[in-house]
C-alpha cells in the first residue's frame, strides 16, 4: 500500500508539463504503484483557493478510490469561510498552506491561527511545503518562523514538506527534534542515505511518503523508500502507515 501526501492537478504555469489532469495523474499512479494521493488543485495555489478547493472536491468525487482532498485557503482571498464550513464536518483530508504563493507570513495571520486551531480539534494534518517542487528556480519559505506557530498549536499535526538537504534539512531536523507534533514529507529528499540517517535519528514514525505527482517524476518517491536500507516495517510506516494513523484519528 502506497499513500502519497503530496499531489497536484491542474495547470503548471512555469513551463509546459504533460499529464497534469486528474486522469493522467491516476495513470501515473498506476504506473508507479501509488494507491492513493492527497491531491490539490493548482488553481487554489495560484489564483483562486475557493474555486480550487471546489475543483479538488469534484476530482475526489470522480476518483473516490484514488484521491483524498488537500484543501487550502489564503487569508487574503475568498474561501476562508467556505473552508471553515467544510472543516465542521470534514472528509478525510489534509489542509495545505502556501504562504509563499499566497503572500503572507504564517505566524502573523489570525485566520491562519483559526484554521490551525480547528485542524487541531478535528485532528486534520496540516501540510506546509518549504517549496512547491524541488526546483532551484522556485522560491523557498522562511521555515525559521514556523517553530513558534508549531509550538502554539500542540494539538495540530504539521507535515513539513519538500525539504531537501543541508541548511534546509537542519532547520527541519530542529523542528522534528523540538516539536513532537511534526512529520517530514519525503518528495524533495534527494541526498545519499538521507532516509537511513533520518530514520536512525528520529525513528520511521516521523516520515511520510510524498512524490509531488505529477510535477515531479512519481517513480522517484516510492523508490527512495524502497531502496533505503531500513527494515521493511519502517518502509511500510513511511509509505502508508504513518499517514493512515494520522488520518485515522480525524474527528
Amino acid at each position: 500500500m502506497i499513500l502519497d501526501v503530496n499531489g497536484y492537478f491542474g495547470t503548471w504555469p512555469y513551463w509546459p508539463m504533460k499529464g497534469t489532469d486528474p486522469q493522467s495523474v491516476v495513470e501515473k499512479m498506476d504506473r508507479t504503484g501509488i494507491d492513493r494521493v492527497f491531491i490539490n488543485s493548482l488553481r487554489s495555489v495560484f489564483t483562486d483557493p475557493l474555486h480550487g478547493n471546489r475543483e479538488t472536491l469534484e476530482v475526489v468525487e470522480t476518483f473516490p478510490d484514488r484521491f483524498y482532498p488537500a484543501l487550502t485557503f489564503s487569508p487574503y482571498s475568498p474561501g476562508y469561510e467556505a473552508l471553515r464550513s467544510i472543516l465542521k464536518n470534514p472528509p478525510k483530508c489534509i489542509v495545505k498552506l502556501f504562504p509563499l504563493n499566497h503572500s503572507y507570513q504564517i505566524h502573523e495571520e489570525p485566520k491562519v491561527e483559526e484554521i490551525l486551531r480547528i485542524c487541531g480539534e478535528k485532528k486534520i494534518p496540516v501540510f506546509i511545503p518549504y517549496r512547491l517542487i524541488m526546483s532551484w528556480r522556485l522560491p523557498t519559505m522562511n521555515y525559521g518562523s514556523l517553530g513558534g506557530v508549531i509550538g502554539k498549536f500542540p494539538d495540530t499535526h504539521f507535515i513539513l514538506g519538500s525539504i531537501n538537504y543541508l541548511f534546509e534539512l537542519q532547520t527541519a531536523r530542529f523542528l522534528l527534534r523540538t516539536y513532537s507534533n511534526t512529520s517530514l514529507e519525503t518528495s524533495a529528499m534527494m541526498a545519499y542515505r538521507e532516509v537511513e540517517r533520518l530514520v536512525d535519528e528520529f525513528g520511521a514514525g516521523r516520515f511520510i511518503h510524498g512524490s509531488c505527482v505529477p510535477l515531479q517524476n512519481p517513480a522517484i518517491g516510492p523508490l527512495k523508500i524502497k531502496a533505503a536500507e531500513i527494515p521493511d516495517e519502517d518502509k511500510e510506516k513511511i509509505m502508508s502507515g504513518n499517514l493512515s494513523n494520522l488520518i485515522g484519528t480525524m474527528v
Binding site: 509546459p16 508539463m17 499529464g19 524541488m134 524533495a188 510535477l215 517524476n217 522517484i220
Partner: peptide, 8 residues
C-alpha cells in the same frame, strides 16, 4: 541534480 521535474 535534486530536481526530478516531470518530462525534464
Amino acid at each position: 541534480s535534486s530536481s526530478f521535474d516531470n518530462d525534464m
